[in-house]
Amino acid sequence: MSDAASASVRDLSGATNMIECEGVSKWYGDFQALNSVSATIKEQEVVVVLGPSGSGKSTWIRCINKLEHHQEGRIVVDGVELTNDLRNIEKIRSEVGMVFQQFNLFPHLTVLDNITLAPIWVRKKPRGEAESAARALLDRVGIPEQADKYPGQLSGGQQQRVAIARALAMEPRVMLFDEPTSALDPEMIKEVLDVMKGLARSGMTMIVVTHEMGFAREVADRIIFMEDGMIVEVGTPEHFFTNPTEDRTKLFLSQIL
């Protein structure tokens, strides 16, 4: 608990704003998935997003990466506003890494090629350099020996760690995680969470959608609770888990804990 406390009292007030959302709304047809979401995420901050299924968590972080486009409001990433301008999008995408629930590795490429693809083609790195960087990343996520296998040959946990390495290979300033452990068996969850913890400690700015309360308690600087496309409550893990203000948060916690 003391470890968690120390994490949550990290003073980030002096840090610059990494992501700013202001009144972001999004509709799927007639259905409103995001309702005026406003939040600011500082550099090096780790934010965990919680909420019941269908509350718009995925939609929100996908908007930050411009995989979905919002219809109202402003999203600014590292000082660049997301518009329909293609150049902006490309810049944002190479600064924001994303890890998906279903891994989405490229099944026809080896692990190494999965990781080096974007550095070579987007960052125009020499292949040798990209490969040694990729091997270093694989080392970091704990699977250096899997470089030449195909994704189909790996376990779920290993695949997800490759996916993290693939995102890190672009040297992003922000990492988005959309339920990275929900498709995994319990014994694999830990290996992925360990990698994420290490990442958080190294000072990466992270937004993590997850149902892993232990992880939230231990690593998060802040927790955002969403429901029905709205942010219901924001607070430190301590505040959030010991005495949440909103009834809906209490209800959610009582169901999940």
Partner: peptide, 23 residues
């Protein structure tokens, strides 16, 4: 194909929504 997705959004499906979307 993400663009494909966005062009298809115009079809209204549920009529019970409380907030009007931009047409």
């Amino acid at each position: 194909m993400t663009d494909q997705q966005t062009t298809d959004v115009a079809e209204p499906e549920e009529e019970t929504s409380n907030l009007p979307p931009k047409v």
